[in-house]
């Protein structure tokens, strides 16, 4: 197997020509997202250049504290965008969701690094940053679905929820159906992608490992390990996000505090 082929900036510039296809379709059909697409392409380029340069430094130094700080920033940004994405109040959710995200990513990353890759340095930048990023990206999506589903269902089905309390349910008993539904909604996409993986599309990590010149059997081992890590991480983070936010969201009568939702 050959190693990875390096792409020069000129070669990548040629790649941008492919954008003429969406641009022509948008112009032809007057799809009003040309401006947004332009901004998105520029943002993607700038953000990735920045991350690429930064990671180059991080990989060269390979300092565990610097790696951990970078991971901490990634978790913080994800935390912020989850709460904004759910329409919930930042001040109340920032801390519990941060803990849920940190635990939901830390456990699978360290199992991956320690038990599967058997690295003595669990904070090795080359592994820990991409792995953490992949798991975190999935945790972010799952937390948005889970928290949004949970709090919006409670608001929508308020009458039904209050009826359970009136019928003698404890807080846990009254909330269990909503927790169940939120977990199911947030985890089903990962379950679905596990069951079709390899048939519908070649997964990202496996493709990356193959492009780097590694044989396909090693590539699928990485893919299987990362899928399991993602699935266990998303389950843990959604469960913790729900569990840790509950205490701040309900009063001692079991009533949902309307202040959990962000007001415009």
């Amino acid at each position: 197997m050959n190693g990875i082929i390096h792409i020069t900036p000129e070669q990548l510039g040629g790649g941008y020509l492919l954008l003429l296809i969406p641009l022509s379709v948008f112009l032809l059909k007057k799809v009003p997202i040309i401006r947004e697409t332009g901004i998105a392409v520029i943002r993607m380029t700038v953000q990735l250049i920045f991350v690429g340069l930064y990671l180059q430094v991080v990989f060269r130094l390979n300092n565990p504290w610097l790696n951990l700080a970078w991971v901490g920033i990634m978790v913080g940004v994800a935390d912020f965008s989850i709460i904004r994405g759910c329409g919930l109040r930042l001040s109340r959710f920032l801390f519990p969701v941060f803990i849920a995200l940190a635990a939901g990513t830390l456990v699978p990353v360290f199992v991956f690094m320690g038990a599967i890759l058997q690295r003595s340095n669990c904070l090795d930048a080359q592994y820990v940053i991409p792995l953490w990023g992949m798991i975190l990206g999935n945790c972010l999506r799952a937390d948005i679905i889970g928290l949004k589903n949970f709090y919006e269902s409670l608001k929508k089905d308020e009458k039904l929820y209050l009826q359970s309390l009136a019928q003698g349910a404890t807080l846990k008993e009254a909330l269990d159906p909503y927790v169940r539904e939120a977990l199911q909604a947030s985890l089903l996409p990962t379950v679905a992608s596990m069951s079709t993986i390899g048939l519908v599309a070649l997964p990202g990590m496996m493709t990356g490992v193959i492009l780097a010149g590694v044989d396909p059997l090693t590539a699928i081992s990485y893919q299987i390990a990362i899928m399991i890590a993602i699935f266990s991480g998303t389950t843990l983070t959604v469960f913790l996000a729900l569990r840790l936010t509950l205490r701040r969201s309900f009063n001692s009568y079991g009533l949902l505090d309307p202040d959990v939702f962000r007001t415009k």
Partner: peptide, 19 residues
């Protein structure tokens, strides 16, 4: 806040337009 979980058990309730 402390005893509401117990006092609810004394009450039956049929809400308006039940869900």
């Amino acid at each position: 806040s402390r005893s509401v979980w117990k006092t609810r058990l004394y009450l039956g309730y049929v809400p308006q337009e039940p869900d």
